[in-house]
Write a protein that binds this DNA or RNA. Structure first.
Lengths: 181, 181
DNA sequence: GTTACCATGTAAAAAGTTACATGATTCT
DNA sequence: AGAATCATGTAACTTTTTACATGGTAAC
């Protein structure tokens, strides 16, 4: 399981509350490891029990108190251990692919419309990623360490979305052509 | 949830037992919707309750009896309904990306080794898919209907694996370069 | 005044993973 | 004799998702 480890990575960059973490998981790290606030609160609790993170309450004026979490020595050890351990390659789970595969058992036109919708969603995400790339990493060849790693992740997201847009276009063209015949 | 629907698609192509379905999920449909035999048995039971599939036991000689499942009218209706309903775009969950992102907090060399391992795993899968493409779809332009849809799914798998191999190569080159400095 | 943001959680249901269990047959 | 294949399942556990719940502040 990598949610703990994704949280460790994120907290190691910057300590924060569960709420703040949930927001980070809405973007950046959450692009390749999505998690909701419920998951994060629950996992943080477990991580305190494991002593991977410490927690202290911070009073705020005009706002509710918050609990700020920080990675402990044990947490850094666990992260290092996990980083060096082999894992399974990611598995895809694609509703859309199942729909395309089953298109001839229902309304093919509806599946074509769904493909087109996803194509646009992926194109939008791609634009977001490309804008990040342009703004945050204008000169990639100079990057090193953490900045390089952040850049590489973004590159992975860009490649994945490009691939999906291209696949949607390929499938759309073929299915529309088939529909006309 | 798409496991029910993936099973409906698969059973609609050919009726079969849970065991047979589990084997199909080892390849083809399982490449983009993995499922173990336990999941399949449990889901089939639920689908019988929902009357999406019917089940009759078949005695075999020299082999244990098996239960053959068949899609019902209600099952086909449900499938058609689902095919036409909009879904969320697939979400990625990549341990490897988390590891790359956190590489500077542990042993970068170990992460590089892990990247190389995944690169090879994806290259292997890609070869498997490319072999299918060559063997099963030598002349894609002539395809239509179900055969076309099967081909398009395979194309999606090919694109995804190609993208992953390329990304691993990009990340490996950059991280090795960074490691040397 | 109502929407959005900050901040935390509980509870239950659904889905997925892992381990264990059985028992016959066919192939080497 | 031992391994692989056929065929089904139970049980326990972990993870994820969805719904519900609270309560203050700030902006429009």
């Amino acid at each position: 399981m990598a949610l703990e480890h994704a949280i460790l990575v994120s907290l190691d960059e910057r300590s924060g509350s569960g709420y703040e973490l949930a927001q980070r998981f809405e973007k950046s790290i959450g692009f390749f490891w999505p998690a909701t606030h419920q998951q994060i609160y629950r996992t943080l609790k477990r991580m305190v029990d494991l002593a991977w993170v410490s927690c202290h309450e911070v009073a705020q004026d005009g706002r509710p108190d918050k609990k700020v979490y920080e990675v402990t020595e044990a947490g850094r050890d666990e992260l290092a251990r996990w980083l060096a351990s082999p894992g399974e390659p990611e598995t895809v789970r694609s509703d859309l692919a199942v729909k395309v595969r089953g298109a001839s058992l229902g309304d093919a036109k509806a599946v074509i419309a769904e493909l087109a919708r996803h194509r646009d969603l992926h194109a939008e995400r791609l634009d977001v990623y490309l804008a990040f790339e342009k703004k945050d990493f204008p000169d990639p060849s100079t990057l090193s360490g953490r900045r390089l790693h952040q850049y590489l992740i973004l590159r992975g997201g860009i490649r994945a979305e490009q691939g999906l847009v291209e696949w949607c276009d390929e499938a759309l063209a073929a299915m529309r052509e088939d529909d006309r015949r």
